[in-house]
Design a protein around this nucleic acid. Structure first.
Lengths: 103, 103
DNA sequence: GAACTATATGAGCATATACTCATATAGTGT
DNA sequence: ACACTATATGAGTATATGCTCATATAGTTC
């Protein structure tokens, strides 16, 4: 039986990778397919395909076929809120370390 | 050079583990030390100590010594917002899978 | 200083993750 | 059917992570 912490962790594990974050940030404006994302991110096709699968399986992205292509979009805008908060905490931490070096 | 996605990922990687999420949720009410958290979570002392170190290093928790003990608290309440959003997305995903089984 | 309590860390192991190369599958257009 | 494009996946490898046991360190109390 999965606990509530397990379920939250599954979402966060899916989010917690630099390339997957970059994918999500590219998708903030547009719906895009694998073949558009790959060159934009400089990722190998098979690698990107696996990252996208992780994001779809967790529910972070939605996907649908359009002919040969598979399109992706972010399923819930609150994902961006998570990224914003993570950025804020990271920024605070970076500043704290910079101060520690000066002192 | 760390990119913005790298920095966000570091925070999210630190957050993305069931035991670390349980630690944070226990700390939502109280300041607690290692020796109080260990029995509450059923974790081995050395294991818990390492999880706490990851959370402090990332900036998610603050810690300070009090005699023999080290106390911990969550450094930024927005961490709980991240967990709430993750829970909401997980819940939606669980419901979607339940519907798929019925149909 | 000796005994005790709380925390940290080294070492070793098992498992998970990210990546690449090669190949398979699926859909399109001729 | 054939060639072409887009995506998915098997296999192998390197690295990272989480856990445990044992031990070290730090601070307290007598």
């Amino acid at each position: 039986m999965k606990t509530s912490a397990d379920l939250k962790a599954e979402i966060l594990v899916a989010l917690a990778h630099p390339n997957r974050i970059r994918i999500i940030e590219l998708l903030c404006k547009d719906v895009m397919c694998n073949c558009e994302l790959a060159p934009a991110l400089g990722l190998e096709q098979s690698n990107l395909s696996r990252h996208l699968k992780i994001l779809v399986r967790s529910g972070i992205l939605k996907s649908w076929k359009d002919g040969l292509r598979v399109n992706f979009k972010v399923s819930d805008d609150r994902i961006f809120k998570i990224l914003d908060i993570a950025a804020a905490i990271a920024r605070r931490e970076t500043e704290k370390k910079a101060e520690a070096l000066e002192a």
